[in-house]
Write a protein that binds this DNA or RNA. Sequence first.
DNA 1: TCTTTATGGTGAG
DNA 2: TCACCCTAAAGAT
Length: 267
Amino acid sequence: MYRVACRIQSDIGGQVMSEVWFAFDRLEPWSKRLTGRVLERVDTLGKALLLNFEDGSCIYTHNQLYGRWMFKPAGQRPDTNRQLRLALGSESRSALLYSASEIDVLEAGQLETHPFIARAGLDVLSSEADVDRIAAHVVDEAYRRRQLGHLLLDQGFLAGVGNYLRSEILFLSGLHWQLRPADLDEGQLRGFAEAVHALMWRSVRTEGITNDRARVVELERAGWKRRDYRHYVFNRDGQVCFECDRPIERVTVSGRRLYRCPVCQPG
DNA sequence: TCTTTATGGTGAG
DNA sequence: TCACCCTAAAGAT
């Protein structure tokens, strides 16, 4: 979503919208109100996308598992069977959201009334979220006695971390998912905060490849399939750990799949 | 042509 | 924790 926000900003940000179209009837009145206005700034808050207009109103979208943004020159549409849900266009370019169902428009100043926004915790990709800030956040009283495996999926804890990053962060910091912030020593806490920060930003750069760059290059050259080398442990159950050669395990935590190396991430 | 799964999220109990 | 919502693609039959 962070990459998408950058793309929307560079394609149509700061420009007058000549087209603002919503697939949902309840939002139809906003079509007229926003057409002709300038799309001033595109932000993310965790996985949410916020399209801010010059009058202070804001389109909120969340892709959930389904949404997909596509970009085309003005007047063109991508070749897809997906359902168009939101279209934004300037004189020159269009940004098109397909399949997503979580779309709302918020009036100026009403941002915090949106339940997802109101609940969102520290946004790992925000400028304030450096390693020190993340480390301090993790040991906050509200979180210090909850298991890391559950915390990492909670958007009220850290906004933006999702299911594949959960497994990857725990692997890189060498921690078992059942540990709690209160259990960690200074070095482990620091390592965890560094892993959160590093892997989120690495994912932005690499389009979601969390494995070490050198290893990715090497395995790609060796003819490995992308799905088998892009992560340390995620989606690799049955295969061996890159660090210790022992098989990766899969468990269910918070109702989602979590992958771990039993040797590199002891209890 | 089914059933299942998914890098997500809510609300009830 | 579970049932449920949402949509599309992958997997099974």
